[in-house]
Design a protein around this nucleic acid. Sequence first.
DNA 1: CAGATTCGTAAGCCACCCCTTACGGTAAGT
DNA 2: ACTTACCGTAAGGGGTGGCTTACGAATCTG
Lengths: 103, 103
Amino acid sequence: MAYESALAALADPTRRQIFETVAAAPSSVGLLAGQLPVSRPAVSQHLKALSDAGLVTVTKQGTRNIYAACPDGLADLRRYLDGLWGDVLTNFAKDIAKELPND
Amino acid sequence: MAYESALAALADPTRRQIFETVAAAPSSVGLLAGQLPVSRPAVSQHLKALSDAGLVTVTKQGTRNIYAACPDGLADLRRYLDGLWGDVLTNFAKDIAKELPND
DNA sequence: CAGATTCGTAAGCCACCCCTTACGGTAAGT
DNA sequence: ACTTACCGTAAGGGGTGGCTTACGAATCTG
């Protein structure tokens, strides 16, 4: 239902890197910005996009916000791709059959 | 290895619609443009992006080019997402365990 | 309470992406 | 050979996305 936002979110290289890092282990905004070639506000904006897509969740720990990967967004995306995968395979098989009328 | 281009290709709504149509049944450029709110050259450019991502293939039939969905690009993308899925789930389970130290 | 740390948001800038129109090239039909 | 159909590419413009700097809010520490 919301696989579009997840797709758009993971299309950006920086956002993808952030998500991969958070998927390996939850982290704070400042820590993420420290190991990235962009500023902290940029990371904050990326995290908002990932959050809107259901890819990450936030938990406040004092003054710092810990972001962790969330299965929901990825689940939607995988469901969508699996649907496509079925269509592509059936059509692909049909085309192969047409290409070999001799036998 | 080339899941990045597939991800970027499917992030665009128009390109996604083109791919879904072609995944249902192979089609020519003009036919695709006919059932889309964009011009034919735009469709041609989108098809090039999809082709570079390994998502579609072309076969010439006289003067018209028939585009069909190709499993390769989708396979790469699914492989990448499955890898992420594993990381997310293990970490998600670990967080749940930490959230319930009482029992 | 004052200072320091961590973070989100606003404003602005710049590059890139998508679209269009225009053109050239190839194949089929008469 | 000429016309028609179908397509890819070049060139240009408009809108959007991602980045930065600047500012304000919230929490912890001394």
